[in-house]
Design a protein around this nucleic acid. Structure first.
Length: 466
RNA sequence: GGCGGCUUAGCCAAGUGGUAAGGCAGGAGUCUGCAAAACUCCCAUUCCCCGGUUCGAGUCCGGGAGCCGCCUCCA
């Protein structure tokens, strides 16, 4: 089956055809660095990670851009409150964002442009819009003239007439020609303090939406393949981006728009007042593993609302353990028996995994294929019907699948390894002399150290509890 | 109020009009000194509710309920 995505622009699933064969240019909306990102944000970044990894799995060369919004109302407010410069205020959150990406094993994009270092590019777009009759200036503020852009509303399917009829018109709106027009550039006001740029447009700062147009076109060209973000960005943010970009360049902006649904927590909307608003850091402090968080955020198809629960995290950790135990047990299996049955399961796993993700990243289907594979191969292993060659082929498929999932948990080396080895050895000796009381007490001791033992035909194995 | 999305077992979650994937939890076995891991079997006559279309509906249509999102500076 061909790779398909649900394109918001078309409002249906479409075959994915890249502009340039074998390559994809992708823009993913990034964080506003006024705080540490919360798990709802990471739902979106995780979806984009799955997208990126699967596109690479399919053999496409990916060029991904993710913006860092380091100038907006929230960052200005934040730096003023702390009495520091804008750059000083945002830097810890930029650093924190990249730390969090690493924690969740989210692959790095090719470019992370910052809004504050792309002001000239934004100014250029406004100048072009002025030239094209799509923007106007009032008292140093520049606005996009929506009436002059007939395509406005094509992404979000917004009926402008209806909007205007029902629009809440604030008292200060007299300044704009139309209430629907949005700001491209905001003239400096005293509230902005020392946050401003002196440009050909005057002294001020860019509006909400402009950075994404400027930075995407700079790194990906006027017309590129795909743009993603949360559903909340569909309107007005992405709609405005289209208007600005196409209005300035005269070319189609983006072919495929993908929007991921929101995350809810314990069945409720995540909000500070409900006390269920979590940053990634807060969840890690509760001793949940990054891998479990990754699994949970990844395991629901991106267009479905995701219910993030702590029970779900526990279940995710167990599913992940099964996945990793399978991998380790298979790698350690010496290969035995007739063989011959595994090939079918291996081929099926690879095909079904890809089939699921080809269908608009249906991760649930893909994961079902993976767990079917685990059970099928485990059965052959327990029946001694798996040759060394078949084992190696199964491992290869698993490795390929894990380039997309990123579920493999690397066992970190322990500093008390020799102590553990010593205890394991003493237990083995106690077992040999059938002194099970001693053997069991040593096992209890190891359990208390978070070490799990497995007695196998190949001898005793131990591992750190995940 | 307008527009859009969602509602499937105890929990999470797939599902192309043809008879309910997968994970977690739970129950019974096999293996084991006992465990652990693994394997086998069981675990939704039923898919929010009410109508309709159809030989056949979780899937299509109409109505209703609940939850979630968006509705343009600013709040």
């Amino acid at each position: 089956m061909a790779l398909q995505f649900f394109n918001t622009l078309a409002n249906k699933k479409e075959d994915f055809v890249p502009i340039k064969e074998g390559e994809i240019r992708l823009y993913t909306c990034g964080p506003t660095v006024y705080n540490f990102a919360h798990i709802g944000n990471f739902r979106a970044y995780m979806f984009e990670d799955l997208l990126r990894r699967f596109l690479k799995y399919k053999g496409l060369k990916v060029t991904q851009v993710m913006n860092l919004t380091d100038i907006d109302d929230k960052t200005i407010k934040g730096c003023k409150a702390q009495g520091v410069s804008l750059a000083e205020y945002t830097q810890p959150y930029k650093d924190g964002f990249f730390e969090d990406l690493d924690t969740l094993k989210i692959e790095r994009a090719e470019f992370y442009p910052e809004a504050t270092t792309h002001i000239p590019e934004m100014v250029e777009i406004i100048k072009k819009l002025m030239t094209n009759g799509l923007a106007y200036e009032i008292k140093g503020n520049y606005y996009f003239k929506i009436d002059a852009f007939p395509d406005y509303g094509k992404l979000a399917r917004i009926d402008l007439a209806g909007l205007k009829a029902g629009a809440r018109v604030a008292s200060d709106e007299y300044e704009k020609e139309s209430v629907s027009d949005f700001a491209l550039w905001k003239a400096w006001t005293p509230e902005d303090g020392d946050v401003f740029w002196e440009t050909d447009l005057g002294k001020g700062r860019p509006g909400w939406h402009l950075e994404c147009s400027a930075m995407s076109m700079k790194y990906l060209g006027n017309h590129f393949d795909m743009h993603t973000g949360g559903v909340d960005n569909k309107f007005p943010h992405h709609e405005n981006e289209i208007a600005q970009s196409e209005g300035a360049s005269g070319e189609k902006f983006v072919n495929y728009w993908l929007h991921c649904a929101h995350l809810i927590v314990e069945g409720k909307k995540m909000s500070k007042s409900l006390g269920n608003f979590y940053s990634l850091r807060e969840i890690l402090e509760k001793d949940y593993s990054p891998a479990a968080i990754r699994y949970l955020l990844l395991s629901t198809q991106y267009r479905m609302p995701l219910n993030f629960t702590f029970d779900g995290l526990d279940a995710a950790a167990k599913a992940l353990r099964r996945y990793n135990d399978f991998w380790r047990n298979l790698a350690e299996f010496s290969g035995a028996g007739k063989g011959g049955a595994a090939g079918e399961f291996i081929d099926k796993a690879a095909a079904e995994f890809e089939k699921g993700l080809d269908d608009d990243l249906n991760i649930s289907y893909a994961l079902a294929a993976v767990f079917d594979f685990i059970r099928d191969i485990n059965r052959l292993r327990s029946e001694n019907n798996l040759t060394a060659d078949e084992r190696d082929r199964a491992l290869q498929v698993l490795e390929k699948i894990d380039t997309v999932l990123g579920f493999q948990v690397q066992e970190s080396s322990l500093d008390n390894e020799s102590e553990i080895e010593d205890l394991v050895q003493r237990r083995t000796e106690a077992k040999k002399s059938r002194d099970f009381a001693t053997a069991d007490s040593i096992r209890d001791q190891l359990t208390a150290m978070d070490i799990v033992l497995e007695d196998t035909p190949q001898g005793v194995k131990w591992r750190k509890k995940v």
